[in-house]
Each structure stands twice: as C-alpha cells, then as structure tokens.
C-alpha cells in the first residue's frame, strides 16, 4: 500500500475500540484509581504546600489554579501512556494488531480504533479529576461541563502524537526520550503549575505553540467560570494537531507494518 494514501476507514475501527474497552472494563476501578492517584498527589502535595506562600495566582486560590492545570496534564499523560506503552504492546509484543489485520479490518481501522480509544480513556481520566475537584469545591460554574469536549480533543491530540512515537519505536526504552524531551517540559512550560507569563519571553513564545498550552488556555477559564479568550484559535490548534499528527502516525505505521 502506498503509505501516503488517504486513510480508508470503516466502522470496523469500532470493533478495535471495543476490544480495548473490554480489556479496560475488567480492571476499570484500579485503572481509574491509578490514573487519579498521580495528579491528586501533585494537587494536594503542591497545592497545600504552596497555597500558604501563594494565596492567589491569576486571581484564584493557588490550589484551584493548579487543579485546572492538573485536569489537562493528567489527560495528556493518560493519552500518551495509552498510545505509547499500551499500543506498542498490542502492536509489537502481543501481535494483537497482526491478528486483527488477518480479519477484514485494515491497518487504518486498527490505528483509528487505537486513537479513539486512547482519547476516550484519557477523557475518563481527565473527567475523574474534574469530578474530584468539583466535589472539593474548586469548580466555579456549570461552564465546566464544556471542559469535557475540550478534554476529549486534548486526548485526541496527545494520542495522535503518541502514535507517531509508537510507529517509530524499536522498544519500550525509546518512550523515555519522548517523555523527557516533550511531555515533562510541557508540564512546566504550558501553565499547569504557574502562569506562563513568569517565563522568559523567548520561552513563552515557544510554549505558545505547544499543544498543552491550548488545552490549559481553554480548560482553566471554563473551570473558573469564564468563556476562554481566543477560544476558536485554541480549538482549531488542537484540532489541527490531532488531524495532522494522526495522518503522520498512519503513514509511519503503514510503512512499518505493511512493507
């Protein structure tokens, strides 16, 4: 197959999505708790620790500021982990994709199913944090419900980026580079822990292009009760990143598996 051909998708992609959902359902509770633990540790550790020093950040209590950032960061992490480690296991270690492609399911369908699944799983993760912080009283208005589609879109963007890395990975070790060079810096540069205005202007200029910046720029106002500035711009950025990254991932995966 020509690796650059347009995606040829069918509803069979949903069977791939369902396969992953069925596996997740068996371990749903521990999996959700696992996804919650890490961001909540940050939230309470840093939030309580720093809120006495920083009573107000960007007009809200620091812990509320951090909570809105953690929703985005944990969505990013959940989508990345799923599209890297879990998808790589299914592609390379367990040969699950190979088995599926012997059935009337194309590689395009498999990859689309994986993409939508990683985005869905990360949405659960982001929504779980959202629920916890709402129960704790850090969510200002029902506008917060609009954060859910933004979380899903954030999941799509990071799942597609992760699938690019998976398509190139020779082994699990390779993912370390992606986390160290891309995911971790974004946690620090994109406004999760502090407003990016604190950064030198050159760094700010770079950070403005990073996908997590767009997610934070949309989710934080929605949770604090405002309609985001430049909403369409940020939505468009996430959408374009998602589609372009999925296109690249598809091309690379075809080159890897259909040669």
């Amino acid at each position: 197959m020509n690796p650059t051909a347009l995606p040829r998708l069918s509803l069979r992609a949903l069977a791939v999505w369902r396969r992953n959902f069925l596996v997740w359902r068996k371990l749903a509770i521990p999996s959700l708790l696992g996804n919650l633990a890490d961001p909540l540790i940050y939230l309470f550790g840093l939030g309580y620790g720093l809120s006495s020093l920083l009573p107000q950040v960007a007009g809200v209590p620091y812990i509320a500021f951090l909570a809105t950032g953690m929703v985005c960061a944990s969505t990013m992490n959940a989508a990345s982990f799923e599209a890297l480690y879990s998808s790589f296991s299914r592609m390379h270690v367990q040969r699950t994709w190979e088995a599926i492609m012997n059935a009337p399911v194309s590689l395009d369908d498999v990859l689309a199913g994986e993409w939508l699944w990683a985005a869905a799983k990360s949405t659960l993760s982001g929504a779980a944090i959202l629920l916890v912080i709402a129960l704790l009283g850090y969510v200002a208005s029902p506008l917060a419900l609009w954060a859910l589609p933004v979380i899903f879109l954030t999941g799509l963007a990071f799942a597609a980026l992760g699938l690019i890395v998976t398509a190139l990975a020779p082994s699990y070790d390779f993912f370390m580079y992606y986390f160290t060079l891309f995911i971790t810096p974004m946690m620090l540069l994109c406004g999760v822990f502090f407003p990016p205005q604190q950064l030198p202007s050159v760094v700010q200029a770079v950070a403005a292009w990073l996908p997590l910046t767009h997610a934070v720029a949309l989710v934080r106002p929605l949770l604090t009760g405002f309609v985001p500035h430049d909403m369409l711009l940020h939505l468009a950025a996430l959408l374009i990143i998602s589609i372009v990254a999925f296109g690249i991932a598809l091309r690379l995966t075809r080159r890897r598996l259909l040669k």
Binding site: R12, A15, V16, R18, R19, L22, V23, K26, Q94, R95, T96, E98, A99, I100, N102, A103, P104, V105
Partner: peptide, 23 residues
C-alpha cells in the same frame, strides 16, 4: 499465523467472541 497472537488479556471464549466482532 506462524506466531501465536491470541489475545492474552482475554479468556478462551472472549478470544473467539472478540475475534468474531472483527468480522
């Protein structure tokens, strides 16, 4: 296939059921 690629996350019956869904 030459190499075993049953789905290790599933039981015997689930392997057949999930594979049928691909068809």
């Amino acid at each position: 296939p030459q190499f075993d690629n049953l789905d290790p996350d599933f039981t015997v019956a689930e392997n057949l059921l999930v594979y049928g869904r691909y068809f």
